[in-house]
Design a protein around this nucleic acid. Structure first.
Length: 820
RNA sequence: CGGGAUAUAGUCCAAUUGGCAGAGGCGUUUGAUUCAAAAUCAAAAGGUUGUGGGUUCGACUCCCACUAUCCCGACCA
């Protein structure tokens, strides 16, 4: 090799700018809707425009871009779009603390992030960009809201809500973790408000059906747990003797087999069924208990997890199956919103009921025993199933599982109860008391009441001249020109809804907007949506398992039932990447360890950053950014550069064994890289390419034919191009190839040329390796054993010994088992 | 407390699914190059596969128990 000439050395900045400009001006990545190739829709969760693209964004986007490029080279018409999740609180906080309008703040951020995104060299077609805070987009949020409203999927209700005092807004259940706002960590307060909901519970059962999606088990489990379907029985207890409107108390239980063990009823403090049940003498105590539990924040309730409190109402219900008179209590371990808000207390067979009963000296009656004899002490509840039924009247002595069914049958016969399901999931509360979101298109008319905005009046625009208050209170409440309007029904005075929508509404259907992002005649072009269909491959963080991913599935099903589309699922395949750390630690400004991609793009180049992120380890396991590791990747790309533009000293005129071996290596690598990329195993794909580079370097002074050498270099570039699009494009050109490398087919391997001529056969004696012999590939069993036995080394071990058996694994080993 | 993931060379990670523990990167050492260093090229060293048991001719791989780390969900009757 001759010494390096300055102009010929790898200069990432120069070529990356060159090719990004070229691709853009030649519209290389513009997506053609009419392409006849099979479609492939690959989507990465779009980012919130926080202002700066950090390495975590790259970690999410670079590998999916590489995979989309791979599919493109495999002959698919690939849609791999990008947009911005542009509504949300940070923009509003910027307005409050720095006086910048959320719109300006957001759009400026988007501009900067787009510049950064482009520096990554992705195949995003920017003509298809979606920005959710623009009226062209959120108009359709409002339109969908109206369709949901028309179809009974959006409704207004008074409910106990999670109020975040920090943000001055309510939160969805999904946004509350351990009684705290998942974003700010502020303690959430429960309060009554009238709010808008989407009826996601209507789809609870269908959301449990995963037969049409190929998702990680973990995510499916999380969604199942969130929906939380429990099979059980709704059973009633008689309170007709009080002469109230309600003659019975309805409870839900998953353990109807323990019905004979009920020793108290517990009702949630907020429950309306308490009305009339509190006796005069208990009134004061009960009221003060209700008041005190209302004042408790969620955090306080959880902090006293172990002890259960409650007060007696003074009333009794009758357990119809045995006529038992059961005291009715109020207890705040009972949740109003789950089941019926009333629990049948069976201390003997439920841990919580047990603690409660112990606390207040209530009876504990065992009705299920592990064996015929009841020898248990009363130290804890017996919660196992499958024992023998005892103390249960006519159901005694049955197997516990049979008793469950028999008791359920009996109750249904008598009309005292029925089998049913209960769900943890509640309807989705979408109202937010904030400015920077989609206005809910509703009017409140003094005469007509709740009036949806007419479709032709959409969008309801956010006023640009809003005045932001330091309290965070929504400016819309004080924006007279927004607030006051005319009712289109009666012409009277009406007020606009001032709440805006949860931003998860935006991301619940953005995947469908990408197929026709500039369409103005409807929410999307139905013809194009039919063609592109569901997202074939979705990638993003697992933290969205029960919010975004569940909401998007709900939207798809709801939109299908309204007749807007014909799909059952939004995302067919899902892959969750792991988290990128910085030298083993979480990245944060306070730690001062934030890795800024821009810095590395300007030194080692985008290709090295992309490849390094993919090389760290398995994508779903995340990894740790390491500067020397990243430099190592840059070093390797230099090696790729060198080997691709230098030529060996000379070429052979005839192919010999070295030549064959090199060609075989190339075919093997093609096979491995293709397989790896299919499975998102970028780390091993790149390792294989490093092996190929090493193989080429080892041959640089050998006499290889020109054809074989060119084939090897060409393959290396093609295989690497999805990961490192710039350097490969440049080297493709420098090798005199026509057209963009990114419009080439991904190489195919020849199955015949992958096969090794000789293999190493391991010979074991009693499972220990005693020799390795080189034999022809696909050697027959008898020959393999014969050769093994003839080995000098093996002879030493087996001579004079009785051979018990011989195990032969073709092309792998021969194990001779002898009797010692 | 429950569910899931992970544990292999100093380090990040491979291992065709039960068959030689090693592909690749980083680091280390040595050699070439250099006046010297960096860069580059070449080579080498490095192991009780977290622990204990079981199955098997054979276990990193399968089964059981445990430990450590990480993620998620936790009063759902």
């Amino acid at each position: 090799m001759d010494s390096s000439n300055r102009n010929d050395s790898y200069n990432p900045q120069q070529i990356e700018t060159k090719w990004q400009t070229y691709w853009s001006s030649n519209s290389l990545y513009e997506v053609n809707d009419d392409d006849s190739k099979p479609k492939w829709y690959e989507l990465t969760m779009y980012p919130y425009p926080s202002g700066d693209l950090h390495i975590g964004h790259w970690y999410a986007m670079a590998p999916s871009d590489a995979h989309a490029r791979f599919m493109r080279m495999r002959g698919f018409n690939v849609l791999h779009p990008m947009g911005f999740d542009a509504f949300g609180l940070p923009a509003e906080n910027a307005a409050i603390t720095r006086g910048i309008h959320p719109k300006k703040w957001t759009l400026d951020n988007i501009e900067n992030m787009k510049r950064q995104l482009k520096s990554m060299g992705p195949i995003y077609d920017w003509n298809r960009e979606v920005v959710t805070c623009l009226p062209e987009y959120y108009k359709w949020n409002q339109w969908i809201f109206l369709q949901f409203f028309k179809n009974g999927l959006a409704y207004r209700d008074k409910a106990t809500v999670n109020w975040c005092p920090e943000l001055n807004t309510v939160l969805a259940n999904e946004q509350v973790i351990d009684g705290k706002d998942e974003r700010t960590g502020a303690e959430v307060i429960h309060t009554e408000m009238t709010q808008w909901f989407f009826r996601i519970t209507k789809y609870a059962d269908e959301l449990l059906d995963h037969s049409h999606i190929d998702w990680p088990e973990k995510i499916k489990n999380m969604q199942d747990n969130w929906v939380g379907r429990s099979k059980g029985v709704e059973v009633t207890f008689d309170i007709s003797h009080y002469g109230l409107n309600q003659s019975e108390l309805k409870t839900f239980t998953t353990r109807i087999d323990t019905l004979f063990g009920v020793t108290f009823i517990a009702i949630a403090p907020e429950s309306p069924v308490l009305d009339g049940l509190v006796q005069e003498s208990n009134q004061e105590e009960v009221l003060s208990y209700i008041e005190s539990s209302r004042r408790k924040t969620e955090v306080e309730r959880l902090s006293t997890e172990k002890d259960k409190t409650g007060v007696f109402t003074g009333s009794y219900a009758v357990n119809r199956v045995n006529g038992a008179r059961i005291p009715i209590w109020v207890a705040d371990y009972v949740l109003k919103s789950y089941g019926t808000g009333v629990v049948m207390g069976v201390p003997a067979h439920d841990e919580r009921d047990f603690i409660f009963a112990k606390q207040y000296g209530l009876d504990i009656n065992f009705v299920v025993a592990p064996s015929d004899k009841d020898e248990r002490n009363l130290e804890e509840a017996y919660i196992e199933k499958g024992g023998i039924q005892i103390n249960s009247g006519r159901f005694s002595n049955l197997n516990n599982n049979d008793a469950y069914e028999k008791i359920a049958d009996y109750l249904e016969e008598k009309g005292w109860g029925s089998r049913t399901y209960s769900y943890k999931m509640r309807d989705w509360l979408i109202s937010r008391q904030r400015y920077w979101g989609t206005p809910i298109p509703i009017l409140y008319c003094e005469k007509c009441g709740v009036v949806p905005v007419k479709e032709e009046d959409l969008p309801v625009l956010l006023p640009d001249d809003a005045i932001f208050r330091s309290t965070g209170e929504s400016p819309l409440k004080h924006q007279i020109d927004f607030l006051e309007c005319e009712c289109w029904k009666c012409g009277g005075v009406a007020k606009r809804e001032t709440d805006t929508m949860d931003t998860f509404v935006d991301s619940s259907w953005y995947q469908f907007r990408f197929v026709s992002p500039n369409y103005t005649k409807g929410i999307f072009d139905k013809k194009l949506l039919n063609e592109w269909g569901s997202v074939d491959q979705y990638t993003g963080g697992a933290e969205h398992a029960v919010m975004h991913l569940l909401y998007a599935r709900f939207f798809t099903k709801a939109m299908r039932d309204i007749g807007l589309l014909k799909l059952d699922e939004p995302f067919i395949r899902l892959f969750n990447q792991g988290h990128i750390l910085s030298e083993g630690e979480k990245m944060s400004k306070s730690r001062g360890n934030v890795v800024s991609p821009d810095d590395y793009v300007s030194t080692i180049g985008a290709d090295a950053v992309r490849c390094y992120l993919m090389f760290i380890g398995p994508w779903d396991q995340g990894g740790s950014w390491n500067d020397t590791g990243a430099k190592g990747m840059f070093r390797w790309l230099n090696r790729v550069w060198e080997i691709s533009i230098r030529k060996p000293r000379g070429f052979a005129t005839h192919s010999d064994e070295k030549d064959t071996i090199l060609v075989r290596l190339v075919h093997q690598i093609i096979k491995r890289v293709g397989n790896d990329l299919e499975k998102f195993k970028f780390n091993t794909a790149i390792a294989a390419l490093m092996e190929l580079t090493n193989g080429l370097y080892a041959n640089i002074d050998q006499e290889i034919t020109e054809d074989s050498w060119s084939f090897a270099i060409e393959s290396l570039l093609l295989l690497l191009s999805p990961m490192a699009p710039h350097i490969t494009e440049e080297l493709w050109e420098r090798n005199g190839k026509k057209g963009s490398i990114h419009n080439q087919r991904f190489p195919d391997f020849d199955p015949m040329l992958v096969i090794e001529e000789t293999i190493t056969l391991v010979v074991q004696v009693n499972g220990r390796v005693r020799d390795k012999i080189s034999v022809a590939n696909n050697l027959g069993k008898d020959q393999a054993i014969e050769l093994s036995k003839n080995s000098m080394k093996i002879q030493q071990y087996i001579q004079g010994k009785e051979v018990m058996k011989i195990i032969h694994i073709p092309n792998k080993l021969v194990n001779i088992v002898i009797n010692n």
